[in-house]
Design a protein around this nucleic acid. Structure first.
Length: 117
DNA sequence: GTACTGACTTGGG
DNA sequence: GCCCAAGCCAGTA
């Protein structure tokens, strides 16, 4: 198990995001113990394209609920479409009721949901 | 080996 | 309430 890597954790947490919910890079980074390394979360997801495993990166947005990473998807409409497909309303590249749909791993997820910390 | 950029966040003015 | 600057780590030039 190499889940101890920061990147691997990001992938795990991202896959653990419930359907119809969204979270922010900072929340994941903070859950991993790196509140200031929010950029690394995005970088990890960028690397996620290299993985054979599907990563619901469309459920990860910035703290404003804005789909900042939609431009990195196969299509600029893929991210919003996937979110809307899961019941998340996206308007003007921004998640509606983001605060309500916000899924905080630090609050909703146990401290050892990654398997073995 | 140094410099810049990048799917971000937070704090200060 | 809005704008500017710093911090973070890794990859690429």
């Amino acid at each position: 198990m190499k889940n101890n890597s920061f990147f691997e954790k990001v992938y795990q947490v991202t896959q653990l995001i419930p359907e119809g919910r969204v979270t922010s890079y900072g929340a994941i980074a903070r859950y991993l113990g790196a509140p200031g390394s929010a950029r690394m979360v995005g970088w990890a997801l960028n690397n996620a394209h290299n993985l054979e495993e599907f990563i619901p990166a469309h459920r990860v947005v910035n703290r404003n609920g804005l789909l900042t990473g939609k431009h990195h998807f196969p299509g600029p409409r893929v991210m919003a479409s996937l979110l809307e497909n899961e019941g998340v309303t996206v308007e003007n590249d921004q998640v509606v009721d983001f605060q309500r749909l916000f899924w905080d791993p630090n609050r909703e997820l146990p401290a050892d949901s990654l398997g073995n910390l």
